[in-house]
Structures are given as C-alpha cells and as structure tokens.
Amino acid sequence: GGQPRVALAWLNRALFLQPLDPNTHRVVARALFQLGATDQALVEERLALESGAESAGAILAESLPRARDVDALWNLVGDTPAHVDLLVTELWRRGRTEDARALLDRALLTFAGQPEATALTVTAARVRLQTGDPAGALVFLDEAEQKGQDVALPRAQALAALGRRRDAIRTLESAVARNPGDAEIAFALAGLLLAEGRPALARAALERIQPFLGPGGPRTRLVLAQADTYRVEGRHGRALDLVQTAMRLSPGDPGLHRQAAELYEALKRPREALREVEVSLSGQAPDAATRAWMDRLRTAIDLETVRALDPARGLDALDSADAGVDPSQSRRLRGR
C-alpha cells in the first residue's frame, strides 16, 4: 500500500524538475488513481494534455471511465475551453450523451465572452443536430456566425433536417464559391443535389473538387460519389465501371464488392453478382439478409439456364440474330 506513495514522492520531484513533461504527469496520474485520489489524478491527466501529450486518445481512454459525472469531468477541462470539444466528442462517441451535453452547457456558461469559446457554440449546434433539434442548432449557428465562425456546413445540415433542402443547397453553393477546395462542403453539396433529383449537377460539383483531392481514401470517396449519381439515373453500367475503379483503389474492401453485386444484379447478370457477394464474405457465414439475396441470385441463374435450354427461347434467339436478314434467307438457314 505504501509503494504508490513512495513512487509519488519521487514523481513529484521529477515534476518539479520537468513541469512540462507529459509522460511524468501521466505516471503521476496513475499513482494517484491507485491511491484513490481520482480528482487529483484527472487534473494530472489534463496537465498531460496541456503539456502536449502525443496521444490524447490514450489519455481519454484511461481517464474518462474514472470520471463518472460532470464534476469529475470538469477536472479535465481546467481554466480554458481548449479541450472541451475533444471531451464532448469522445463522450458522445462512448454513448455518454447526457454527460456530453451537461459538460458542454457548463462550459458555455463558464467561458461565455472568451474569444476562444466561440467554437463551443458550433459544438453546441452539432449536439443539437445529433439530438434531433435542428431549429435549436440554427440559433447557436447564428450566434457563431456573428462571431466570425464559418458555419456553412452545419447550417446546411440543419436546414436540410428542417426540410429546407433548397436553402441548404444555396448555403453550400455560396460556401463552395468561397472555399473551392473544401472537400467536405463539396461532398455535402453533391449529396443534397442528388437527394433533390439533380444528379448531373451533383456530378458537376464532384468534378470541381477533383483537383484538390489526394490519392487513397479521398479519391475512392469521390469515385463512389460519382457512381451514385449514375446509379440514380439508372445508368448501372457506368456506375459499375466506377465501383470497379474504387475496388482497384481500395482492394479488399468487402463493401465495394457488395456494391458491385447490386449493380450486376440491376444489369441482370446474376452470375457475376453472386460471385461478388461470395467475395465480399471472405469465407464468413452470410447473415440472413445476405443468404436470402444469394438464394434470389441462384434462382435467377437457374431461370437464365432454363431459358438458354428452352427450344422456343432458342427460336426467339435465332429470330433476334436474323434481324435485318432477308426472310427467305432466314428460312433457308433454318432448313439446313
């Protein structure tokens, strides 16, 4: 029981010599946790963050489970709002939505009027959006915009959630004119245009962002967004070409094989569709929905085989092949 106290004494000495060393703050925090001094330990975790610790995620993974209420969480905030957004986002990701909202509300009250707190207003708007209150989000966004924040993207999301899709599109079009290289705004605009039934305009928005995207994930995202515009138009062959391009850019992605399977099925090519579904499974057992899909594709393959063997269907195929040939020549060909 005395070992943590002895270690803590040595660590305090180390902190006196190197007060800005994040690793020492973290070791002190662990010792304090062992001693049951949770509030002090959380303060040390905050000091590690403020001292430039490289892995904020690791600090939060260790500290958040021990900070069980808003009062405990406040030890991770300190005298500035610098880490509030990070804390709220991580709490939300972990399903602690009530704690996230309570921490954010306290921060808004505590740091009101401080210039660096303006970003918290955008965070508050985002939280309102995620909890189904787009009108409340717009109130915060108006406030943030008055303080010089660029809020085009969350404003468009709030407007779309309120059913004001065309206003959202106009908001994003203005934002694209100001920031032509902002990929998130361009993708959001394309998505809204697609939802509005304007796939050609969505494609044009995607083409404008193309020069600003690097290789890898952003390029794959662009190609798949372009594929969606053709899919909406019923141009499944062109959409399939783009999905296959995405498969070359991101090999081994099972989701892309499933997209290819859907397009093959739309093109009435069940054999290729089934093959892509099987590849997407990578040897794993299919779930009930996938199993039903595979059964449907196998049925389509069987019907395709039966049609190919049906003599009447064979004559139809011959008539089709003879299209444009003189009828007497066609009859002579059949008589051979």
Score class of each variant (00 low, 15 high):
Trp10Thr: 01
Trp10Arg: 10
Leu20Asn: 12
Arg26Asn: 01
Ala29Leu: 00
Ala29Met: 04
Gln34Met: 15
Leu47Ala: 04
Glu50Ala: 15
Gly57Ala: 15
Ala61Val: 07
Asp69Ile: 09
Asp71Asn: 14
Val77Ile: 11
Glu90Ser: 04
Leu91Thr: 09
Gly95Pro: 02
Arg96Asp: 06
Arg101Cys: 05
Phe111Pro: 15
Pro115Phe: 14
Ala117Ser: 14
Leu120Ala: 11
Val122His: 02
Ala125Lys: 05
Arg128His: 11
Phe140Glu: 07
Glu143Lys: 09
Gly148Asn: 14
Ala152Cys: 02
Leu153Thr: 09
Gln157Val: 07
Ala158Ser: 07
Arg164Met: 15
Asp167Leu: 10
Glu173Ala: 06
Ser174Lys: 14
Ala177Gln: 09
Pro180Asn: 04
Gly181Asn: 12
Leu189Tyr: 03
Ala190Arg: 00
Pro199Arg: 02
Arg203Pro: 01
Arg203Asn: 11
Ala204Tyr: 00
Ile209Arg: 00
Pro211Val: 08
Phe212Asn: 07
Pro215Ser: 08
Pro215Asn: 07
Gly216Met: 15
Gly216His: 12
Gly217Ser: 01
Leu240Cys: 05
Asp241Val: 01
Val243Asn: 09
Leu256Trp: 03
Leu263Met: 04
Arg269Lys: 11
Pro270Lys: 08
Arg271Ser: 11
Glu276Thr: 00
Val279Asn: 04
Ser280Asn: 01
Pro286Cys: 13
Thr290Gly: 02
Ala292Trp: 08
Ala292Phe: 10
Arg298Ile: 08
Asp302Phe: 03
Glu304Pro: 03
Arg307Ile: 13
Leu309Phe: 10
Asp310Arg: 02
Arg313Leu: 08
Leu315Ser: 12
Ala321Ile: 13
Ser330Ala: 15
Arg334Lys: 09
Arg336Cys: 03
